[in-house]
Protein backbone atom coordinates (compact mmCIF):
# COMPACT_ATOMS: atom_id res chain seq x y z
CA UNK A 1 0.00 0.00 0.00
CA UNK A 2 2.76 2.36 0.98
CA UNK A 3 4.55 1.82 -2.31
CA UNK A 4 1.37 2.58 -4.22
CA UNK A 5 1.10 5.95 -2.52
CA UNK A 6 4.72 6.58 -3.42
CA UNK A 7 3.97 5.78 -7.07
CA UNK A 8 1.44 8.58 -6.99
CA UNK A 9 3.56 11.14 -5.16
CA UNK A 10 6.81 10.74 -7.06
CA UNK A 11 5.48 12.39 -10.21
CA UNK A 12 4.51 15.55 -8.41
CA UNK A 13 7.85 16.56 -6.98
CA UNK A 14 10.63 13.98 -6.70
CA UNK A 15 10.36 12.85 -10.31
CA UNK A 16 8.49 15.85 -11.69
CA UNK A 17 8.36 15.25 -15.44
CA UNK A 18 9.39 18.78 -16.42
CA UNK A 19 11.71 19.88 -13.64
CA UNK A 20 13.49 16.59 -12.95
CA UNK A 21 13.01 14.26 -15.89
CA UNK A 22 13.04 17.19 -18.37
CA UNK A 23 10.45 15.46 -20.54
CA UNK A 24 7.71 17.09 -22.57
CA UNK A 25 9.58 20.38 -22.92
CA UNK A 26 8.21 21.15 -26.39
CA UNK A 27 4.59 21.67 -25.27
CA UNK A 28 5.86 23.21 -22.04
CA UNK A 29 7.66 25.95 -23.92
CA UNK A 30 5.12 26.41 -26.69
CA UNK A 31 1.73 26.57 -25.00
CA UNK A 32 2.57 28.06 -21.62
CA UNK A 33 1.66 31.56 -22.80
CA UNK A 34 -1.32 31.76 -20.44
CA UNK A 35 -2.76 29.93 -17.47
CA UNK A 36 -5.76 28.84 -19.52
CA UNK A 37 -3.66 27.30 -22.29
CA UNK A 38 -1.33 25.63 -19.79
CA UNK A 39 -4.17 24.10 -17.85
CA UNK A 40 -5.90 22.92 -21.04
CA UNK A 41 -2.72 21.29 -22.32
CA UNK A 42 -1.88 19.80 -18.91
CA UNK A 43 -5.30 18.24 -18.42
CA UNK A 44 -5.40 16.87 -21.97
CA UNK A 45 -2.00 15.26 -21.55
CA UNK A 46 -3.00 13.90 -18.14
CA UNK A 47 -6.11 12.28 -19.59
CA UNK A 48 -4.11 10.64 -22.38
CA UNK A 49 -1.40 9.59 -19.94
CA UNK A 50 -3.81 7.90 -17.53
CA UNK A 51 -5.77 6.13 -20.26
CA UNK A 52 -2.73 4.89 -22.13
CA UNK A 53 -1.04 3.79 -18.90
CA UNK A 54 -4.09 1.74 -17.88
CA UNK A 55 -4.55 0.17 -21.29
CA UNK A 56 -0.91 -0.66 -21.80
CA UNK A 57 -0.52 -2.22 -18.37
CA UNK A 58 -3.66 -4.28 -19.04
CA UNK A 59 -2.45 -5.67 -22.34
CA UNK A 60 1.27 -5.80 -21.66
CA UNK A 61 1.26 -9.63 -21.77
CA UNK A 62 -0.22 -9.82 -25.24
CA UNK A 63 1.98 -7.24 -26.86
CA UNK A 64 5.27 -8.78 -27.97
CA UNK A 65 8.25 -6.59 -27.13
CA UNK A 66 9.36 -6.26 -30.75
CA UNK A 67 6.17 -4.53 -31.81
CA UNK A 68 5.48 -2.73 -28.57
CA UNK A 69 6.42 0.76 -29.73
CA UNK A 70 4.02 0.81 -32.70
CA UNK A 71 1.29 -0.65 -30.51
CA UNK A 72 1.82 1.95 -27.80
CA UNK A 73 1.86 4.76 -30.33
CA UNK A 74 -1.41 3.63 -31.87
CA UNK A 75 -3.01 3.41 -28.41
CA UNK A 76 -1.70 6.86 -27.44
CA UNK A 77 -2.71 8.37 -30.78
CA UNK A 78 -6.23 7.02 -30.35
CA UNK A 79 -6.69 8.80 -27.04
CA UNK A 80 -5.11 11.98 -28.37
CA UNK A 81 -7.50 12.02 -31.30
CA UNK A 82 -10.42 11.52 -28.90
CA UNK A 83 -9.23 14.50 -26.85
CA UNK A 84 -8.85 16.53 -30.02
CA UNK A 85 -12.33 15.75 -31.32
CA UNK A 86 -14.01 16.36 -27.98
CA UNK A 87 -12.13 19.62 -27.49
CA UNK A 88 -13.03 20.84 -30.98
CA UNK A 89 -16.69 20.12 -30.29
CA UNK A 90 -17.02 21.48 -26.78
CA UNK A 91 -14.14 23.95 -26.25
CA UNK A 92 -13.54 25.49 -29.69
CA UNK A 93 -11.69 28.54 -28.41
CA UNK A 94 -9.19 26.47 -26.43
CA UNK A 95 -8.84 24.17 -29.44
CA UNK A 96 -7.99 27.16 -31.64
CA UNK A 97 -5.44 28.43 -29.09
CA UNK A 98 -3.61 25.14 -28.61
CA UNK A 99 -3.69 24.38 -32.34
CA UNK A 100 -1.08 21.91 -33.54
CA UNK A 101 0.04 21.12 -29.99
CA UNK A 102 -2.98 18.94 -29.27
CA UNK A 103 -2.14 16.34 -31.96
CA UNK A 104 1.49 16.66 -30.91
CA UNK A 105 0.64 15.15 -27.51
CA UNK A 106 1.14 11.85 -29.37
CA UNK A 107 4.87 12.43 -29.42
CA UNK A 108 5.02 13.96 -25.93
CA UNK A 109 7.92 12.06 -24.37
CA UNK A 110 6.22 11.88 -20.98
CA UNK A 111 3.48 9.61 -22.29
CA UNK A 112 5.61 7.17 -24.26
CA UNK A 113 8.24 7.40 -21.54
CA UNK A 114 5.81 6.33 -18.81
CA UNK A 115 4.41 3.59 -21.05
CA UNK A 116 7.91 2.23 -21.62
CA UNK A 117 9.35 2.75 -18.16
CA UNK A 118 6.36 2.04 -15.97
CA UNK A 119 3.10 0.75 -17.44
CA UNK A 120 4.74 -2.05 -19.40
CA UNK A 121 6.21 -3.45 -16.17
CA UNK A 122 3.60 -2.74 -13.51
CA UNK A 123 0.02 -3.52 -12.60
CA UNK A 124 -3.05 -1.66 -13.73
CA UNK A 125 -3.72 0.23 -10.50
CA UNK A 126 -0.09 1.21 -9.98
CA UNK A 127 0.04 2.43 -13.59
CA UNK A 128 -3.09 4.48 -13.06
CA UNK A 129 -1.54 6.13 -10.00
CA UNK A 130 1.72 6.71 -11.85
CA UNK A 131 -0.14 8.36 -14.72
CA UNK A 132 -2.20 10.48 -12.37
CA UNK A 133 0.83 11.65 -10.37
CA UNK A 134 2.91 12.39 -13.46
CA UNK A 135 -0.06 14.16 -15.02
CA UNK A 136 -0.60 16.33 -11.98
CA UNK A 137 3.12 17.13 -11.80
CA UNK A 138 3.11 18.11 -15.49
CA UNK A 139 -0.08 20.16 -15.25
CA UNK A 140 1.01 21.90 -12.07
CA UNK A 141 4.44 22.93 -13.39
CA UNK A 142 3.00 23.98 -16.74
CA UNK A 143 0.35 26.09 -15.00
CA UNK A 144 2.91 27.90 -12.88
CA UNK A 145 4.94 28.76 -15.99
CA UNK A 146 1.71 29.80 -17.72
CA UNK A 147 0.68 32.00 -14.81
CA UNK A 148 4.06 33.75 -14.60
CA UNK A 149 4.14 34.35 -18.35
CA UNK A 150 0.56 35.59 -18.48
CA UNK A 151 1.04 38.03 -15.61
CA UNK A 152 4.36 39.43 -16.84
CA UNK A 153 3.85 39.15 -20.60
CA UNK A 154 0.23 40.22 -20.91
CA UNK A 155 -0.61 41.72 -17.52
CA UNK A 156 -3.51 39.33 -17.12
CA UNK A 157 -4.67 36.38 -15.03
CA UNK A 158 -7.10 33.98 -16.70
CA UNK A 159 -7.71 36.60 -19.35
CA UNK A 160 -8.58 39.39 -16.93
CA UNK A 161 -6.26 42.40 -16.57
CA UNK A 162 -4.28 42.57 -13.33
CA UNK A 163 -4.26 46.34 -13.40
CA UNK A 164 -5.53 48.92 -15.83
CA UNK A 165 -2.20 50.65 -16.32
CA UNK A 166 0.24 47.75 -16.19
CA UNK A 167 2.85 47.80 -18.95
CA UNK A 168 3.50 44.19 -19.96
CA UNK A 169 7.08 42.91 -20.37
CA UNK A 170 6.32 41.46 -23.75
CA UNK A 171 9.31 39.14 -23.94
CA UNK A 172 7.60 36.79 -21.50
CA UNK A 173 4.75 36.28 -23.94
CA UNK A 174 7.25 35.35 -26.67
CA UNK A 175 9.25 32.10 -27.00
CA UNK A 176 12.40 33.46 -25.25
CA UNK A 177 10.23 34.20 -22.21
CA UNK A 178 9.30 30.52 -21.97
CA UNK A 179 12.96 29.53 -21.92
CA UNK A 180 13.77 32.21 -19.34
CA UNK A 181 11.00 31.19 -16.94
CA UNK A 182 11.68 27.46 -17.34
CA UNK A 183 15.41 28.00 -16.85
CA UNK A 184 14.80 30.02 -13.72
CA UNK A 185 12.46 27.37 -12.31
CA UNK A 186 15.01 24.62 -13.02
CA UNK A 187 17.67 26.68 -11.25
CA UNK A 188 15.44 27.24 -8.21
CA UNK A 189 14.57 23.53 -8.05
CA UNK A 190 18.28 22.63 -8.26
CA UNK A 191 19.19 25.12 -5.56
CA UNK A 192 16.41 23.75 -3.37
CA UNK A 193 17.57 20.15 -3.87
CA UNK A 194 21.14 20.99 -2.91
CA UNK A 195 20.14 22.35 0.47
Amino acid sequence: MKSLVAEFYKGIFKENPILVLALGLCPTLAVSTSLQNALGMGLSATFVLICSNILISMFKRFIPSRVRIPSYIVIIATFVTIVELVMEAYLPSLYKQLGIFVPLIVVNCIILGRAEAFASKNGVFASFLDGLGMGIGFTFTLSIIGLIREVLGAGKIWGYPVSLDFVPVLVFALPPGALLVLGLMLAIKQAGDKR
Partner: peptide, 8 residues
Protein backbone atom coordinates in the same frame (compact mmCIF):
# COMPACT_ATOMS: atom_id res chain seq x y z
CA UNK B 1 17.63 42.66 -27.19
CA UNK B 2 15.59 42.08 -24.03
CA UNK B 3 14.22 45.61 -24.15
CA UNK B 4 13.47 45.37 -27.88
CA UNK B 5 11.50 42.16 -27.35
CA UNK B 6 9.76 43.46 -24.23
CA UNK B 7 8.87 47.04 -25.06
CA UNK B 8 9.01 47.29 -28.86
Amino acid sequence: AFLMASFP
